[in-house]
């Protein structure tokens, strides 16, 4: 158990360092959320009050969190492929899932910066107030959201083990998840058939938990959903990684980039 936790910690630190060295990763974390937040502020400030703008600000912050998770998930395995280290990582005695947990959690951790940057951007440039209705629950909802998003990232990353073009699908999933999770437009506006998809997504519950702890409400249920979904993603990720890894070994496609 201690060995596993140590490996997760090392993977987390290494991935954080790698992302900090990549110009694209830094830009993705620093600039992208601010641009989308600005578009949202310009659109909503015409008709919305302070509370609406704060709702928007928190949604935009989660957009950055999801973008970072998705990019990290899509890029980690691609990067290992191009650097020809994927086979070594998978062949090592440490389960590959453990390695993926560390890197995926690091990507969502970087996304936390988006949250801070977006809220600060909203406060400084658009005068969006930031008063926490439940500070303690806010502190609880953030790690729960990061955990659930990070583990959802593992499910995405697992597909890349087998399908080397899955990164294209991962790149495409930014907008649909932002939309389905109700980050800038309420889920109620979406067609009914989208709602079950929305409720199966970590960003939906993560954003709800954070919004209810900031704006007021009962975030405990949403926090619980984040943790429950995290457990489900971990189980799915475990089976995906195990099966896709075996298939990729059989087909000898691991090193193909």
């Amino acid at each position: 158990m201690l060995h596993t936790l140590r490996m997760i910690r090392i993977g987390w630190i290494l991935q954080l360092k790698t992302m900090a060295r990549s110009g694209f990763d830094v830009m993705q974390a620093v600039v992208t959320p601010i641009v989308y937040a600005s578009i949202a502020f310009f659109l909503y400030r015409r008709g919305g009050g302070a509370e609406t703008l704060l709702w928007v600000s928190l949604g935009a912050a989660f957009m950055g969190l999801w973008a970072s998770t998705l990019w990290g998930a899509g890029n980690t395995i691609q990067r290992q492929r191009s650097q020809q280290t994927l086979e070594f990582t998978i062949a090592s005695p440490t389960p590959f899932l453990v390695s993926l947990i560390g890197t995926s959690l690091a990507s969502s951790t970087v996304g936390l910066y988006s949250l801070v940057a977006t809220l600060a951007w909203g406060r400084l440039l658009f005068g969006v107030p930031l008063e926490l209705a439940h500070p303690f629950l806010f502190a609880l909802s953030l790690p729960a959201a990061v955990l659930s998003l990070g583990l959802l990232g593992i499910v995405m990353a697992a597909m890349l083990i087998l399908y080397r073009y899955a990164y294209a699908l991962a790149n495409m999933l930014e907008y649909p998840i932002w939309l389905a999770a109700g980050l800038l437009a309420p889920i109620a506006l979406l067609p009914d058939w989208v709602h079950p998809i929305s409720y199966a997504l970590a960003p939906t519950w993560g954003a709800r938990a954070v919004r209810e702890s900031v704006l007021g409400g009962s975030p405990l249920f949403a926090i619980g959903m984040c943790l429950a979904l995290a457990a489900v993603y971990l189980v799915i990720g475990y089976f995906f990684v195990r099966n896709f890894e075996q298939l990729a070994r059989k087909r000898a496609t691991l090193a193909l980039s």
Partner: peptide, 13 residues
């Protein structure tokens, strides 16, 4: 999805 995303923001706002 870019078009759908912004159109729904437009509807919401």
């Amino acid at each position: 999805f870019q078009i759908l995303f912004f159109a729904y923001i437009g509807r919401a706002s």
